[in-house]
């Protein structure tokens, strides 16, 4: 593990790795999202129960799936950082956090928008929506803790501890909210049994999840590069990089 990670503890190498991966993630991601969205919105068959409104799942489901994976990814980055003292790992964690928070927020908004035609109300204290809301709070907590410190190295460690506390708590939250939800049933929650989704609907959904993952990856890579540059502003390699790009833009 350490052997594999060690080269990327050096920020410069990580920066160049991000540079190399970025076009793949961004171009591929955009292409996949485009295909999936057009397919999902225009060509997938209409749901007989929910009519056209169900199509929001092509945004809602990917964002909901990703929000949890991004939180886990953030916690893994934090763990690696704390155990092996890898500085870049904390940078990765903080590059992931706002992406994750945004995605969670999107899943909440789309969930609410979906809820309007389904439940007749913008907000229903449904188990999944509630856990998403708590997840958003966890993300925001980690981000605000990081921002509160001036020393970013210390900030990374502190936010890392909190991210790990959160990730241990995540299944407990999930379970407890479900429990709470079944306990307080009887509200107007419309229980629709999920019929297994026909493949014409499923494929665009899977594609859009992939597309969202790739685009989040691309945004993460960009943020990571940004973070590295900001933190290492005065290191020689950053200065050299800046000079080079300045020279090339003058050459044009």
């Amino acid at each position: 593990m350490w052997k594999w990670l060690h080269p990327y503890a050096k920020t410069e190498r990580t920066y160049h790795l991000c540079q190399k991966l970025l076009p793949w993630f961004s171009l591929l991601g955009l292409a996949v999202i485009l295909v999936a969205t057009v397919w999902g919105l225009a060509f997938a068959p209409m749901d007989y129960q929910q009519s056209e409104a169900y199509r929001i799942i092509y945004v809602h489901v990917p964002s909901a799936v990703l929000s949890k994976s991004l939180y886990s990814a953030m916690a893994i980055a934090a763990f690696v950082g704390l155990v092996w003292q890898v500085k870049t790992s904390f940078m990765a964690m903080m590059a992931l956090a706002p992406v994750g928070a945004t995605v969670t927020f999107v899943s909440l908004i789309t969930g609410a928008a979906w809820g309007k035609p389904m439940w007749g109300t913008w907000w229903e204290w449904d188990a999944r929506l509630t856990s998403q809301l708590i997840l958003l709070f966890l993300f925001l907590g980690v981000i605000s803790l990081y921002k509160a410190f001036e020393d970013k190295q210390q900030a990374g460690k502190a936010a890392g501890v909190m991210a790990i506390v959160g990730v241990i708590n995540l299944p407990i939250i999930h379970y407890s909210v479900q429990w709470w939800n079944t306990l307080h049933q009887g509200a107007s929650i419309m229980k629709f049994d999920k019929p297994s989704m026909p493949p014409e609907m499923l494929w665009p959904l899977l594609l859009s999840i992939l597309g969202w993952a790739l685009v989040s990856g691309a945004i993460f890579l960009l943020r990571m590069q940004n973070e590295i540059l900001q933190r290492e502003l005065k290191r020689p390699w950053v200065v050299a990089l800046a000079n080079k790009s300045a020279a090339s833009s003058e050459g044009k």
Binding site: D151, K152, Q153, E232, L233, K234
Partner: peptide, 8 residues
């Protein structure tokens, strides 16, 4: 030693 991203 680095403090606040400044090499001391």
């Amino acid at each position: 030693v680095v403090k606040r991203d400044r090499l001391l």
